[in-house]
Computed example of a mutant assay.
Amino acid sequence: MANYYSLHINCGGGPIAIGKFRYEADEGYGGEAQYVPSKDNWAFSTSGHFRDKNNTADMYIAKNVSILRMSSSELYTRARLSPLSLTYYARCLVHGNYTVKLHFAEIVIRDNRSFQSLGRRIFDVYIQDERVLKDFEIKKEVQGVDKELIIQFKAVVKDGTLEIRFRWVGKGTTTAPHKGIYGPLISAIDVQAVEIIVDLKGLDLQTDSFTLRQLRAATNNFDSANKIGEGGFGSVYKGELLDGTIIAVKQLSSKSKQGNCEFVNEIGMISGLQHKNLVKLYGCCIEGNQLLLVYEYLENNSLAYALFGSETSSLMLDWAIRQKICVGIARGLVFLHEESALRIVHRDIKATNVLLDKDLNAKISDFGLAKLCEEENTHISTRIAGTMSVSWA
């Protein structure tokens, strides 16, 4: 079964396209205590029975009674309605962070001076069993009827399913302006993975996926005693997996404004590159608000640490070793520029981004600012793209 990164539903209406989104139809019968598996990746269920009313199929779809003048009015001509509880299940989602947009418009109750304006529709909204709206009334919130109201929430998907529930809790009116129009009402739903997930969707990654629990265990919950580096986009920790593999875990800083872009770029650039003078990327972790990269561990830290951390470093870099390191850096760059399937310009070569293994072989790291080099481009900008060199802790 396929994995999904987004879902767009025209609740109570037919299939439509608005901008870059295609909304799926939701016209199925939603009668008393019904579970409706609309497609492989979503379903909905309803419960309850409208009081003193002969329940029919069309009662569970509210229909607009006037001309709508808001943008994207096609989403609001119909809406899904339920007397008690209405739940949508987005399934087969890739785990990670999502934005959820709920579209509302009161298209049944009126706001004129007639009897049609006396009704009050009040309900609660839950996302992943957490109440996000209490005693919510569309007409009151948007100060009128036939007006769109879009509310955005954040949600985390861990087991592939996102649950959005609307529940009437006995408040409001049940017979005004007429029987059977109360209960939760929803016009459309947008579920979209945040940028980091969407950008990774198309990458043919040759790396593993780690869980946050694995990496916390490996680094003793990111203990400061295991911290081996600090860069412009976060900290680096030494860790050990259950199979004994020693790793370096780069934890992206939440303060980094460009962090997501660099994270995606780094994975995409080096996931498939193999060279003795490039740091090997084992995998990544995307969970909650955590973004982490997992590399091979290099025993002698960075070139900056070897050169400038003399008080704590015991390395002796004679001229032969220094030449070896320079040649290793050059070989890594030649591979990136001329020999790899993807021609890459690193743009941030400095001592902190050159790591040394146990034999003092140089390996280039940190591809967050790298760019693909098109062969027809004969000029490479010399503008500084990264940060000033920062010594390792």
Rank of each mutant, 00 (worst) to 15 (best):
W319T: 13
S235P: 00
L68E: 02
I18M: 07
D135L: 13
A217W: 00
R80Y: 01
N10L: 10
Q251K: 15
N221K: 09
N300S: 05
L242Q: 14
F136T: 08
D26R: 12
L81P: 01
V191I: 15
S209M: 09
W42E: 07
D159R: 15
L360Y: 12
K134W: 02
L102V: 03
E299A: 12
V108R: 03
P15D: 10
K227R: 14
R131I: 05
K324L: 09
F335Y: 15
T211C: 13
N41D: 13
S365N: 13
M316E: 13
E375N: 14
V198F: 00
E130I: 15
I349K: 08
F367P: 05
E106H: 05
C11W: 03
T352L: 08
Y88T: 12
V249N: 02
L317V: 08
N3T: 13
K350T: 06
T99G: 13
T207A: 12
K358Q: 03
N260T: 08
Y297S: 14
W392I: 12
N361F: 03
Y237D: 12
S313E: 13
D190M: 06
L355Y: 02
R331T: 14
G234I: 02
S389H: 00
Y76C: 04
L355V: 08
Y297Q: 11
N289L: 08
N226G: 15
T352H: 00
A90P: 03
R216I: 09
K201C: 01
G283A: 05
H275G: 11
N41L: 09
N112C: 01
Q274T: 10
D199E: 09
T211I: 13
E24Y: 11
A25H: 08
